[in-house]
């Protein structure tokens, strides 16, 4: 689907360098801390910023092509909705677009009743769904969504994820999502790519396969612990309470704060606290 070789982008002191990233699945979750290079990577794939190296989409090299010939649409964090045009005009803006899906799409986006409203009259969440819809209706070979959940409430996060997945399957178009918001809507990605300081540190096919501390901490800081400079993830079912182990205090039902070597960590378990010490049982060591 997407193969990136030796991609380099320099932005001031920051350098993005993707040595070799090969994504074969249709859905990709791109995660990383703020400033790790997620948006820079998407913008260089879309051609919005110049980069060196090779980018292959469906086995065709596109990094030498201008933006309009790459067949890549991108949802930017700024949304870029036309405030003085109607929802319908905004949605039908792409020059290359798929015929016959407008009615389905505007219904799925929850904007059918607002199709004649100007972009300026939409809420932030609605504007974001409109911008996502504009990408979905476009005839693209790859869809890039930078923070598509940032303005959505909990229910609409699920809806947005479902809509993107639905149209991706319907037209067999792969997509990449970046996000800083983590939750249930992040399950079932075929690729999970983690970047840090401009480099890929992990590329796996499911959340269970994550082995890097930084990736795991982005998904959830719960059950991540550090003992003698080594990072581990604790199995919630392996946690026990007794007279030996680590000091803890109850934060909320099923969540405990544990002190290890002077640092605090948070652990979730269904075990009932019966003693004044907590033990982790089996730990899985993480890369750091």
């Amino acid at each position: 689907m997407l193969h990136i070789i030796d991609l380099k982008v320099k932005r001031g002191k920051f350098e993005l360098h993707i040595d070799d990233l090969n994504l074969s699945g249709r859905s990709t979750l791109l995660i990383g801390e703020n400033g790790s290079g997620k948006t820079t990577l998407l913008r260089s794939i879309a051609g919005f910023i110049p980069s060196s190296g090779k980018i292959y989409i469906e086995n065709s090299e596109v990094n030498s092509l201008p933006i309009e010939e790459r067949g890549v649409c991108m949802l930017s964090a700024a949304l870029n909705i036309f405030m003085d045009r109607s929802v319908k005009e905004n949605l039908l803006f792409p020059k290359r677009k798929r015929d016959g899906i407008y009615d389905d799409l505007i219904n799925d986006l929850g904007l059918a009743e607002k199709e004649n409203l100007k972009g300026a009259n939409l809420s932030s969440g609605e504007s974001q769904r409109l911008a996502i819809g504009r990408c979905l209706i476009s005839e693209s070979k790859l869809m890039l969504f930078d923070e598509p959940f940032s303005f959505q409430d909990q229910i609409n996060k699920m809806i947005v994820r479902d809509i993107i997945e639905k149209y991706s399957v319907r037209f067999n178009v792969p997509y990449i999502i970046t996000t800083n918001v983590y939750g249930e809507f992040l399950y079932n990605f075929q690729n999970i790519v983690s970047i840090w300081k401009g480099e890929v540190i992990e590329n796996v096919n499911s959340l269970d396969q994550i082995t890097h501390y930084r990736t795991a901490s982005l998904i959830s800081p719960l059950n991540l612990i550090k003992i003698k400079d080594e990072y581990y993830t604790a199995d919630p079912n392996g946690v026990t309470f007794g007279d030996s182990g680590y000091d803890y205090e109850v934060i909320s039902q099923g969540v405990f704060r544990v002190e290890i070597d002077g640092n605090y960590f948070y652990v979730r378990t269904s075990s009932f606290p019966k003693g004044n010490k907590l033990n982790f049982g089996k730990l899985r060591k993480l890369q750091y």
């Binding site: 051609g47 933006i67 309009e68 649409c73 870029n80 020059k95 504009r134 005839e139």
Partner: peptide
């Protein structure tokens, strides 16, 4: 320029 980039990604020439 961002709007123009967006339009070009939807197939419009510069």
């Amino acid at each position: 320029i961002e709007y123009e980039n967006m339009a070009r990604s939807f197939g419009y020439k510069p």
